[in-house]
Amino acid sequence: MADERLYFQLQRAAHHLRVAADRRCMGAAGITTAQLGALFAVQQQPGVTQQELAHTLGQRESAITSMVTRLVDAGLISKRTHPRQYRAIALELTASGKRALDRVRPAMDEFNEQMRAAIGADKFTETAEALARLDQWFEAT
């Protein structure tokens, strides 16, 4: 009989996936999965503010401030004065940040393919959609 403690199973799987993905990201580009998420968000929305980035990533602003400092220090993103928001800082991906994303993409593509194989190709999209619905449910509550 399958273990139906869904929260426990999700938590355990998330931990193992995060550790494995972090290893791959660190090996490929010297970044964590949390930093990868931030880089992708900045790439998708150039000029994003730290507040907007925190919302996008579901993180506290204080955590994002620390992460942004590390990414700036590593030369992966840059800060500039926001053109429309007084006191806001706009974030941009640097050339080094773009190269880091290029280096990590094959490792993450391979990881996704391995997850697809583990879940089953026919269930992969269904699983991703179910997790997105859980995320939307949480946002609505």
Rank of each mutant, 00 (worst) to 15 (best):
M115S: 02
M67T: 03
D3N: 15
L131R: 03
Q50E: 11
K79Y: 00
I31S: 02
R80C: 01
K123M: 10
T94A: 11
R99K: 13
G97D: 09
G30A: 07
V19W: 04
C25I: 02
R87P: 00
Y7W: 11
R18I: 09
A90L: 04
Q136H: 04
R80H: 03
F8T: 13
A117V: 12
T65E: 01
T81K: 13
E139D: 15
E129S: 14
Q9T: 08
L39F: 08
E129D: 15
A132V: 14
D122N: 06
R84Q: 13
Q11M: 13
Q35I: 08
K123G: 00
L17A: 15
H55A: 09
H55K: 08
E113N: 14
R105E: 00
E126K: 11
H82D: 14
Q59G: 01
E61F: 04
S62T: 15
T69R: 02
E61S: 05
G97A: 06
F111D: 09
L76T: 01
V104S: 00
L71K: 01
G30H: 10
A107P: 03
G30S: 07
H55V: 14
A14C: 02
F138D: 05
V42H: 13
D135L: 07
L131E: 00
A132G: 07
Y7Q: 12
L101Y: 04
A121C: 05
Q45N: 14
M1P: 07
F138E: 11
H15T: 04
D3H: 10
G58C: 05
S78F: 00
Q85H: 05
D102V: 10
T141N: 09
L36T: 04
A88T: 00
R99H: 09
P83Y: 12
A20F: 02
Y86R: 15
G58K: 05
R18H: 07
Q45A: 14
D22L: 05
R70W: 00
D109I: 03
M108P: 02
G75S: 08
A13V: 12
E113H: 11
A117W: 07
W137K: 12
G47Q: 09
A121N: 10
D135Y: 07
V48N: 07
R12I: 02
P106M: 06
H16M: 06
R18K: 11
T125F: 08
E92M: 12
R84Y: 12
L36F: 04
W137T: 14
M108K: 11
T81N: 03
E52F: 00
K98H: 13
E110C: 05
S66C: 01
R12Y: 10
F8L: 13
L71T: 00
G47E: 10
Q44N: 13
A38Y: 06
Q51Y: 01
L53Q: 07
I89M: 08
